[in-house]
Design a binder for these strands. Sequence first.
RNA 1: GGCCCCUUAGCUCAGUUGGAUAGAGCAGCUGACUUCUAAUCAGCAGGUCGCAGGUUCGAAUCCUGCAGGGGUCGCCA
Length: 586
Amino acid sequence: MNVFTIFTDRVKEAIGKCALTARDGSELDLSRVIVEPPRDAAHGDLATNAAMVLSKQIGMKPRDVAEKIAAQLIEDKDIDRVDVAGPGFINMALSDDFWRGLVVSIVKAGKDFGRCNLGGGDKINVEYVSANPTGPMHVGHTRGAVLGDCVANLLDFAGYDVCREYYINDAGAQVDVLARSAFLRYCEALGDDIGTIPDGLYPGDYLVPVGEALAKEHGDKLKKASEEEWLPLVRAFAVDAMMEMIRGDLAALNVEHDVFFSERSLIHGDKDRVKEAIDWLADKGQVYVGTLPPPKGQLPDDWEDREQTLFRSTAFGDDIDRPLKKSDGSNTYFANDIAYHFDKFKRGYSKQVDILGADHGGYVKRLKSAVAAITEGKGGLEVKICQLVNLMRNGEQLKMSKRAGNFITLRDVVEEVGVDAVRFMMMYRKSEVTIDFDFAKVTEQSKDNPVFYVQYAHARTASIFRQAASEVPHLAVGIEDLVNADLSGINDELELALIRKLSEYPRIVEGAAETQEPHRVAFYLYDLAGYFHAVWNKGKEMPQLRFINVKDEKMTLARLALVQAAANVISSGLGLLGVSAPEEMR
RNA sequence: GGCCCCUUAGCUCAGUUGGAUAGAGCAGCUGACUUCUAAUCAGCAGGUCGCAGGUUCGAAUCCUGCAGGGGUCGCCA
């Protein structure tokens, strides 16, 4: 169904028939031969680099090779015209009938158009969000959440068996701080005057109900207990409450996970999996006790030279070996993370993707080296780093401070601008560049806002069908009717351009899945919507091009098929981004 | 100082893994609404792809160096 892969095969077939041989007598290497849309539409529908890629192997000039291949290609009934151009490009123009037939295929394929088998059913694990369970999700988390969700959607569509996973960081010092903060609220709920929240504890009001719930469940029992006794209890309770809140936040963003994995369970589960992982590495000689050189440049104030347990990550491409134990003997975050990635590998995910924030950029090398070591090169990890989001209002940056408690939450944003706009805007940018997210602009339901532009195009497709139902009510326009429509009358330039654009969708999806770059889908949709709007508007100047023509039901049905194809692709693409495809804009 | 990311039109950004004459949107200018919902469309104008080398048939894209911006650098996660 992907036009470009279909013709890549046909080009390779044609090369086979040309009796071209490599200079050294070996088989021709066709791996770099590709068929793409030419940059300039005037060059035709498809272009291949075959001649340029092969000329060196064959020992002929690119243009001469091109001429030979071209002579074969012109035999193809779907190819109308073949030209050799520039340094040796072979440009092909496909027959209008081929393009018209494609509309029928898209309508037939329905929701499956664009699906591919890149993954071949392989298991892949995508870990995203993994925000600390110490408070509500803020805007900073939003981008990673949407990115991870869209990447997972893409991989699923591209034929992977995807697991969406959230790693709950419930083992470190932060959750102890959370417990103490919740305990304070518990005392407050029992009537104590707690005054201002001390530095170092979480001040947010969201812990008030947690304190109240604790008071309800335990009365004043915990106050009489020692911290050693109440802390694990309160911690578990507070973490559960925070996770429930975070799940709610994620739900508001239409983000779902299959697995919530507890960091604590690695250590305090049936066995100590962190120790297990480290022992395993030690067995392989990748763990040792030694000292690290201090960082270059400015030396930290409290630097002391100290022996520690280190993982030999430099053996796997890292710049420096990495500590596994803190000075108090507990595990570093990294040590636990090694065990976690080991666990994912043992669960069958030889392919893993982690979505991390920009502040974790320095963590990527050690993570990759850990996965390389622990899977003995059999497991692969891709790390996507996503940059910060600058929240703006009317061109001015909003300053946030978690300590002052005035940070803007994910909920705030979703409530103000809506989930569709948030998600689309987050994906309307490469993940590695910072986003200026201006409330004023995103809220304004207007031209400055691409999400409405795309949704409007979809709404218009629905509008046409509503219109058809009222103007030509007896005309049957079910999928079977559209599939059997006679499309021979569709020959306007803009209509054919729209069909060509639709044909690119599978290729866009495949590229986006391969590179884990959902923004490609967003940009494609914007582009596609433009083609659709153009066809719509042309019907105003030239009434014979209107989708609905009461006097010509054959043409109407043909155009409805085209509209249906466009609707399929737009709603499919928006679906991958987790954005709704509305029937009307209200 | 080490490592990672970014630098493309006045502004915000794409650029199909190295292809042909580098593209959108916004802002500016000219036009199209008794509509298939104009939340749209047609057109004009706008460029030393940060700078300098290198690799090759061919570079915004790959390599090296430099400049500017951001992130990060043992016991935070």
